[in-house]
Write a protein that binds this DNA or RNA. Structure first.
Length: 827
RNA sequence: GCCGAAGUGGCGGAAUGGUAGACGCGCUGGUCUCAAAAACCAGUGGGGGAAACCCCGUGCCGGUUCAACUCCGGCCUUCGGCACCA
């Protein structure tokens, strides 16, 4: 058996020596290689890979420590575990660093990968390092380009004109998050403009319905993430209605969710970008007015233009359309608040029942007609101060008067369909995914433009289109690709004539939308992912990452998986079966970011207190899903606990001999505590309740101290308790537990040892505290045998002195008995 | 404005409708020491009391229940997401 009496000398807990030793040993052994083993159940545990912007920060430590506990736990309970790591290595910060520090993005990125890899290794995460990947390497992005080609083949990648945030100083498109609240560029403070550009899109909108419906498959996803995605997709039901342009008889279709208000239309609106706007005013005296209106809009982002408090602005276009339902002629305006990208870019205006239309009507003195009356009271158009958008009864709507408006929606739709004026329609808020970036540090889009053949995809066998790394950023941080003839000058794959390459690169969200597939066969150079390995490992069983990726990354990944499914490469529809979203780790309540200079990194803590301490502390801080503010108050406590564990083994266990009179009551209590701890920790790990799992282990350690301090020691019972504590703690603090496990004379690694099992009977304490309440207030606590009968409980409770004092001579109306726990006497 | 999450000691946080504050930090006291640190042991929500005990207490106001941090209704605050989506 393990505990031998050895030298009385207690070795120091030298965390640095221990951790360095095991890092090296695990590395040399390839300790966490994943292998598909058909005999075993599998578990693919995935943590969101980092953007390598420097060394690891505490958010990474929190995220990856969670994943590591899960991966190690599943290994211990007999699963084949895949737990990989890689780098989301393309992106804007690398270019910013190049601009400010003069370092090439490639160099900066690879240096940072080095830094973060080093941190991750020191932290002892059980990654299969042989599968490490980086999205900026040609072996990886070759397949990102391959997916682009597949999208292109299926018509899911297309090029179109669209507006984008354009920084005139930087000469490039900015993502929304790169535009500050005041509409300026985050990098150069120049006012960002809206600019029309011809850009590449993925048709994610085509998948909107499936992305929505398949959420039913995501039973183990947090409800809040599903809600966010649902809102983002923004499905609505309504009707398309055709209005007739008076001048030409042309039909203009609008989308509305309120067909019940169709009789209240008093004007008609077009988005400023709508092509009809120009047509309507061309060569008229209103042309200048429209130009002035456009001038007011330009120099602003859609962001600003569509801000809720923005003042309604518009211009009459001198034309009229006819409302099909009543033949009324209403004027056409263009207005700042109408979105070109949503619906058809044209809307009917019902000022009485839409707040935006109401404000516009009041400003331009347009009529307001009430067609829905509220259940209480009666609206008078002239007296209204805001639109009435709630349910009510239809009025002034010939054929529908008196109909409750919710019913009216269906009735009006029937009427529209019957007359061929319109039809029921569904719309989504989700827009197609703009993937073009006028950037250097990203995946080149594998497209060639030929004067003769037009837009031609690069043939699969010519992939990858290599991003040249010998270029420096152009003036103002612009992409050098359009200037590098060596890059863009090529021949047409179809006709062999001279051609130009696309010089835009892809949004980095494309890179991260499929990386989890690549981990199953990262070195495969004939497929993006090996079919056999995929069959075994995919889908991801447990995905863990920050809540900040709730929408974009997770939605794009779901989209990619569906496309891959449609390509016939996989038979599942969703990539991530279970999702755990950890809350952000903030510093002083704010998101950690380099620009704020509030990034806390693990390095110093590892040096001073050890990786085990840091891991333990961050998991102990609280439940994974809540936002946590970093404070190191208490990190010493975690270290102190590990010291206590260290001494528990060396001083209390290895040096202890059985001594004194045996005390079966105390022995049984420790044994019971051991089994109870195994039970509780096992349960908590299954629920990601890592903070309470750690608490239970701490309690067991405290119990061992108490046991060895107070009286005679039964070696066998003591060893079982100590061994169990080390074994349970191993997924949290892999280094110290491995060291102590060996010190206790165990052969092999604690990380390969079977997870401890418990006996439910032993886990039950022999005695419990019986709470006695009078009218719901605690009046006494009595220690009783755990198997006490309800009758006995009642008797003991009624006999309690403090209780009888409270009952006095009052009559007992009722006695509630909760078996094994509580008696409430109601008087 | 809409959607979502959360409000519990000095702090991080525990509590299948059944002992509110587990575990840890911090603090206080003790043991050890010439002393200190470390370690070990004990105490620690607020108020009252010598003590036994008693009263109050989970953002606020109501309700359901023998019993509410937990369930229901209404507010307040903080954080996150979306932001004129017709």
């Amino acid at each position: 058996m393990a505990c031998r009496k050895e030298s009385m000398e207690t070795p120091d807990y030298d965390h640095n020596a221990i951790e360095n030793k095991w890092v090296e040993r695990w590395e040399a052994e390839g300790a966490f290689r994943a292998a598909a083993d058909p005999e075993k159940p599998k578990r693919y545990v995935l943590v969101m890979f980092p953007y390598p912007s420097g060394p690891a920060h505490m958010g990474h430590v929190a995220n990856y420590s969670l994943g590591d506990v899960v991966a190690r736990y599943y290994t211990r309970i007999g699963y084949s575990v895949l737990h990989p790591m890689g780098y989301d290595a393309f992106g804007l910060p690398a270019e910013n660093a190049a601009i400010s520090g003069g370092i090439h993005p490639a160099r900066w990125t690879r240096d940072n990968i080095e830094l973060i890899r080093n941190d991750l290794k020191r932290l002892g995460y059980s990654y299969d390092w042989s599968r490490e990947l980086s999205t900026c390497e040609p072996e990886y992005y070759r397949w990102t380009q391959w997916f682009f080609l597949k999208m292109f083949e299926r018509g899911l990648a297309y090029k179109a004109d669209a507006t984008a945030n354009w920084c005139p100083a930087c000469g490039t498109v900015l993502a929304n998050e790169q535009v500050l609240g005041d509409g300026t560029c985050e990098r150069c403070s120049t006012f960002v403009e809206e600019r029309w550009l011809n850009q590449w899109f993925f048709r994610i909108k085509e998948y909107a319905e499936r992305l929505l419906v398949d959420m039913d498959l995501l039973e183990e996803w947090p409800e809040r993430v599903l809600t966010m995605q649902r809102n983002w997709i923004g499905k609505s039901h309504g009707a398309d209605v055709e209005f007739t342009l008076e001048a030409t008889g042309e039909k203009i279709t609008i989308y509305t969710t309120r067909p019940d208000t169709l009789f209240g239309v008093t004007f008609f609106l077009l988005a400023p970008e709508h092509p009809l706007v120009d047509w309507m005013v061309q060569g008229t005296e209103r042309e200048a007015e429209v130009a002035a209106f456009r001038e007011r809009l330009s120099g602003r982002t859609e962001f600003e233009r569509t801000a809720l408090d923005a003042v309604k602005d518009g211009v009459f276009l001198g034309h009229y359309v006819t409302n099909p339902v009543n033949g009324e002629r209403v004027p056409v305006y263009t207005a700042n608040f109408v979105l070109f990208e949503y619906g058809t870019g044209a809307v009917m205006a019902v000022p009485a029942h839409d707040q935006r239309d109401f404000e516009f009507a009041r400003k331009y003195d347009l009529p307001v007609r009430v067609v829905i009356q509220p259940p209480d009271g009666e609206l008078v158009a002239d007296e209204m101060t805001e639109a009435y958008e709630d349910p009510g009864t239809m009025v002034a709507s010939p054929g529908f008067d008196g109909t409750p408006n919710e019913e009216g929606k269906a009735a009006v739709c029937d009427m529209l369909e019957g007359n061929g004026w319109g039809r029921r329609a569904v719309n989504y808020r989700l827009r197609d995914w703009l993937i073009s970036r006028q950037r250097y540090w990203g995946v080149p889009i594998p497209i060639v433009y030929c004067e003769k053949c037009g837009t031609v995809p690069v043939p699969e066998e010519d992939l990858p289109v290599i991003l040249p790394e010998d270029l420096d950023l152009a003036e103002g941080g612009r992409s050098p690709l359009p200037l590098a003839e060596s890059f863009w000058s090529t021949t047409c794959p179809e006709c062999g004539g001279p051609a130009k390459r696309e010089t835009d690169t892809m949004d980095t969200f494309v890179d991260s939308s499929w990386y989890y597939f690549r981990y199953v066969s990262p070195r495969d150079d004939s497929h993006p992912f090996d079919p056999e390995e995929t069959l075994y490992w995919m889908p991801v069983d447990q995905y863990i990452g920050g809540i900040e990726h709730a929408i974009m990354h997770l939605l794009y990944s779901r989209f990619f998986t569906k496309v891959i499914h449609d390509l016939g490469l996989i038979d599942f529809k969703e990539p991530f079966s279970n999702l755990l979203c950890q809350g952000m780790i903030t510093k002083d309540g704010a998101k950690m970011s380099k620009s704020k200079g509030n990034v806390v990194t693990p390095g110093d803590y590892i040096d001073r207190l050890g990786a085990d301490t840091l891991r333990l502390y961050i998991l102990f801080m609280g439940p994974p899903e809540v936002q946590k503010d970093w404070s190191d108050a208490g990190v010493e406590g975690a270290h102190r606990f590990l010291g206590r564990v260290w001494r528990m083994v060396h001083e209390r266990c290895l040096q202890a001999g059985s001594a004194g009179e045996p005390d079966p009551v105390r022995d049984r209590a420790l044994l019971s505590a051991t089994h109870r701890t195994i039970m509780n920790v096992t349960r908590d790990l299954g629920e990601f309740a890592f903070n309470t799992a750690v608490s239970f282990i701490m309690e067991l350690v405290n119990a061992v101290y108490q046991y060895t301090t107070e009286g005679p020691v039964n070696r066998e019972v003591l060893v079982e308790a100590v061994r169990s504590a080390i074994s349970l703690l191993a997924p949290f603090t892999p280094f110290i537990t491995e060291e102590l496990w060996r010190a206790m004379g165990e052969e092999g690694s604690v990380h390969q040892a079977p997870w401890p099992t418990f006996d439910e009977v032993l886990a039950r304490p022999e005695e419990v505290t019986l709470v006695v309440q009078v009218n719901g207030k605690v009046r006494d606590k009595i220690t009783v045998p755990a198997d006490i009968s309800e009758d006995e409980m009642r008797q003991r409770a009624l006999a309690s002195e403090n209780t009888t004092r409270f009952i006095g001579d009052k009559a007992i109306r009722k006695v509630v008995v909760v078996p094994g726990k509580l008696v409430n006497i109601v008087i």
